[in-house]
Amino acid sequence: MKIMSFAAARPRYDGHTDIVTRLFSQGYCVVEDAVGQGDLAALRRDLEPLFEQTQRSVGPFYGDATKRFHGLLRRSRHMETFVLQHDILRAVETVLGNHCDSIQLNLTQAIEILPGGEMQPPHRDQDMWPLRTPGVEYLVNVMWPFTPYSADNGATVIWPGSHRRQDEIVIDESEAIPIEMAPGSALLFLGSTLHAGGANRTRAPRRGMIVSYSLGWLKPYELPWLAYPPEVVSALPRELAELAGYRAHRPNLGTHEGRCPSYLLSGERADLGAIDALLPEQEELIALYRTGALAPSNSHAAP
């Protein structure tokens, strides 16, 4: 596996730590040869009919010369290879893991930019959520090309270093670069990185997909329990099911009947009662309170 920055020479790098370094230094990186061509071909075959059937998108952000469809975990069993790619997933967990108990899938979305499609408005995906905490990343996107991405056919456009310039809504296009890459490679970029889908000035569509991971306590772009009901998720590997929403985020977020929703996959009865999902430090504080070891704070007492 080889990681590169489009704007620089392409030396060889190995492992998730180099991905993390480049994400924090430039706001993006490209991992070449991230999956095998056989896995890619199998996924493309599964999704091909859906690209043909899906209607054009509506709205000034999506663009009326694009097609988009979601819920890709239920559309192809080959999604597992992409969503759970070892080095990429470890890098995502490193970037996001200090700010949540567990990460989640924010969305899986197949995208086709048709000939004549205009450049998408530049944006930062973190702006879906109306909050910003300095030093905290809310999501990491992974773009997987199904066809070669070029500057002419709509390659994703990135503003390097824009994750450090978050107060600038618009940055001059002269500072942006199209990320040209071959199928089998993956483009990772932070939710704080300014980017856009490029214009397609060719006669052929540009196809690919985005797999997006976010902090587990955020409301995701794609509602997981609607996208992946229990009868669908029960056939998935446990790690994939957890990313798709079947895991409570401690303390007690994302539960069903007061319990971790993973019980839906095990055949357990729903009437067995609520079960706490707490962090160890919270359990420790409760134990200390019960024993009287916690003294009331006087910090807010009246003078």
Rank of each mutant, 00 (worst) to 15 (best):
S150H: 12
W159M: 08
I158D: 05
A186L: 06
L190G: 00
W159F: 13
T156L: 14
H163L: 05
I179A: 12
F189W: 05
N153C: 13
E173R: 05
I158M: 11
P178M: 07
D172T: 10
G161E: 12
I177K: 00
S185D: 15
D167C: 13
G184S: 02
S174I: 15
E173T: 14
A186R: 00
E180P: 04
L187V: 14
M181V: 13
T156W: 07
A155N: 10
A176K: 06
A155V: 12
P183C: 12
T156E: 09
H163N: 09
E175P: 01
E168L: 07
H163M: 07
P148S: 07
S185Q: 02
T156V: 15
D167R: 10
D167Y: 09
G184F: 07
R165M: 14
S162W: 05
V157H: 02
I158E: 08
F189Y: 04
H163V: 10
G184P: 03
I179W: 11
A151D: 12
R165Y: 06
W159I: 08
I158P: 04
L190V: 03
S174H: 11
A186I: 06
I169M: 11
P178N: 03
D167A: 15
A186N: 03
V157K: 02
E168F: 02
F189T: 00
G184T: 04
V157L: 12
T156I: 15
P178D: 08
V170T: 14
L190P: 00
E173S: 14
V170M: 15
I177L: 13
Y149V: 13
D152G: 02
Y149L: 15
E175S: 06
A186T: 05
T156Q: 06
L188W: 03
H163W: 08
E175V: 05
N153W: 09
M181H: 06
A176R: 11
R164M: 10
A155K: 03
R165A: 14
A186D: 05
